[in-house]
Nucleic acid binder design. Structure first.
Length: 273
DNA sequence: ACTTATTCCTGCGTGC
DNA sequence: TGCACGCAGGAATAAG
């Protein structure tokens, strides 16, 4: 999916585009996303003003004037864009919010791993999807002590553990590989074996990788676009992701690709120990 | 309780 | 050109 930087970029775009707009009509396709739409879906949204847009993990939260939150997750291939109202919808447009300024929000998701639902604001953090989410990596929640505690029973490799949302949210397949390279830690190292020094490096690496990616508008591998239809540029800054068989930018060693828990991992066997 | 495999989908590149 | 195959930014669930 869009990982944390991409979702953050989408959220920032939505804040430019849809705040204070009123929803006057919604449309859904016949296809179900990861969850069925809630009953009373339209009633919860129609005539409501969009007050605030933010994110928790990779969930996009649109707070409405009736204290209902519209929750959207982009899955692997979800895209949101804002444009003039148009009946000629691109293939895989599953959800449309028609706004009072002649524009619409379009949710397009070919693979349908995305998710759209609603929740009352007062119950948001108890919501099944959000209740067990781990630390936000760009906040002070992510500390050495926190990771020591979470990792102490984890014998699995640090790369897959890093992608476990119950520990840290928002770090997906790209940023896990990139952060580990920056921290000079092997993706194969069991999480419980990381020293305090390595955890310090890892936390700094995660934060700086995500922050830099946000600055560059995220990564566009194939077709990621933000809400304003711009590409991201962080893919030009990858040190290891997708660079297998190429030379390490630091030591010239050949970058290795391997499979961990069904996902591709890229790393430098010389730099990362 | 942890860890891996499977599952939900479409689309694209590769190789035969 | 066509087809089979593998793989893709996620994450819940099942199974070991």
């Amino acid at each position: 999916m869009p990982e944390l930087p991409e979702v953050e970029t989408v959220v920032r775009g939505l804040n430019n585009k849809i705040i204070n707009r009123i929803i006057f009509k919604i449309q859904t396709s016949n296809h179900k996303l990861r969850l069925a739409y809630p009953k009373n879906f339209a009633e919860q949204l129609i005539n409501q003003k969009i007050i605030k847009v933010w994110r928790r993990a990779k969930y996009i939260i649109c707070q409405l004037s009736n204290d209902v939150c519209l929750i959207m997750h982009l899955g692997m291939s979800g895209k949101i864009n804002i444009g003039v109202q148009n009946d000629n919808l691109p293939k895989h447009t599953h959800f449309t919010l028609h706004l009072d300024n002649g524009e619409s929000l379009y949710f397009n998701d070919p693979r349908r791993f995305g998710l759209i639902t609603t929740c009352e604001y007062s119950k948001l953090f108890e919501h099944k999807l959000l209740a067990h989410m781990g630390a936000e990596p760009l906040t002070e929640e992510l500390t050495i002590d926190y990771l020591l505690e979470k990792f102490k029973t984890r014998n699995g490799p640090i790369k897959t553990t890093l992608m476990d949302n119950k520990i840290i949210v928002g770090v997906g397949n790209i940023y896990a590989s990139e952060s580990l390279f920056l921290a000079r830690i092997s993706p194969l190292l069991p999480a419980k074996q990381l020293t305090k020094v390595q955890l310090t490096k890892l936390i700094l690496a995660i934060k700086s990788t995500l922050e830099k990616a946000i600055k560059l508008g995220g990564s566009t591998l194939k077709d990621y676009r933000n809400a304003e239809d711009n590409k991201g540029y962080f893919q030009n800054e990858f040190n290891v992701y997708g660079r297998d068989q190429q030379n390490c930018l630091l030591c010239n060693e050949i970058i290795v690709k391997l499979n961990q828990a069904g996902r591709a991992t890229y790393y430098c066997i010389k730099c990362q120990k």
